[in-house]
Simulated scan of single mutants.
Amino acid sequence: MRPIIEFCASNIGHGTGPLMNKLEQNPEYDVVEYGCLNNCGECYLQPFAMVDGEIIAADSPEQLEEAIETAIKEQEAWDSLDLD
């Protein structure tokens, strides 16, 4: 399953625009921008995105990129476990 990475247009002031554009270039990700993700507290305080519905926040867009990639790798590890 391809990860869905959601960005809030109101959070672009924290520098998430270039990161969103960069991640859109990766064919393994579905990247979506919404006018609002209804997380105003996060949106106001720091760069954030949602990865498969989970809030990922960081102090800078560069750190956010690392946190997003870590979250995706962790999810892929869980998905690869055979629980049968």
Rank of each mutant, 00 (worst) to 15 (best):
M1L: 10
M1D: 11
M1S: 13
M1N: 06
R2L: 12
R2H: 10
R2P: 14
P3S: 10
I5K: 01
I5D: 03
E6L: 05
E6F: 01
E6Q: 08
E6R: 11
F7T: 12
C8E: 06
C8S: 03
C8K: 01
C8T: 07
C8V: 05
A9L: 14
A9F: 08
A9C: 06
N11Y: 04
G13H: 13
H14A: 03
H14R: 05
H14S: 03
G15M: 07
G15H: 08
T16R: 05
P18T: 11
P18F: 07
P18L: 09
L19P: 03
L19G: 04
M20F: 08
M20L: 13
M20Q: 13
N21L: 14
N21M: 13
K22C: 06
L23T: 06
L23Q: 05
L23D: 07
E24D: 00
E24Y: 00
E24P: 00
E24C: 06
Q25P: 06
N26P: 02
N26I: 06
N26G: 06
E28M: 05
E28W: 01
E28P: 00
E28A: 13
E28R: 11
D30V: 07
D30F: 00
D30P: 00
V31T: 05
V31Q: 04
V31R: 00
V31E: 03
E33N: 03
Y34D: 00
Y34N: 03
G35P: 02
G35L: 03
L37N: 03
L37H: 00
L37A: 06
N38D: 11
N38K: 09
N39H: 15
N39P: 00
N39Q: 14
N39R: 11
C40M: 01
G41D: 03
E42K: 00
E42R: 00
C43K: 02
Y44C: 01
Y44W: 02
L45R: 14
L45T: 09
Q46L: 05
P47S: 08
A49R: 02
M50D: 00
M50F: 10
V51E: 07
D52L: 01
D52F: 02
D52A: 04
G53A: 06
G53W: 07
G53T: 14
E54C: 03
I55T: 14
I55D: 03
I55C: 07
I56Y: 02
A57M: 01
A57H: 04
A58G: 08
A58K: 09
D59S: 15
S60C: 12
P61I: 06
E62T: 14
Q63E: 15
Q63I: 08
Q63H: 12
L64F: 09
E65I: 08
E65A: 11
E65K: 10
E65L: 02
E66F: 03
A67I: 07
I68N: 05
E69V: 13
A71T: 15
I72V: 13
I72T: 10
I72D: 07
K73E: 15
K73Y: 04
E74I: 15
E74V: 13
E74P: 02
Q75M: 10
Q75V: 04
E76G: 07
E76C: 10
E76V: 10
E76K: 15
A77I: 09
W78V: 11
D79I: 13
D79H: 10
L81F: 15
L81V: 13
L83R: 14
D84V: 11
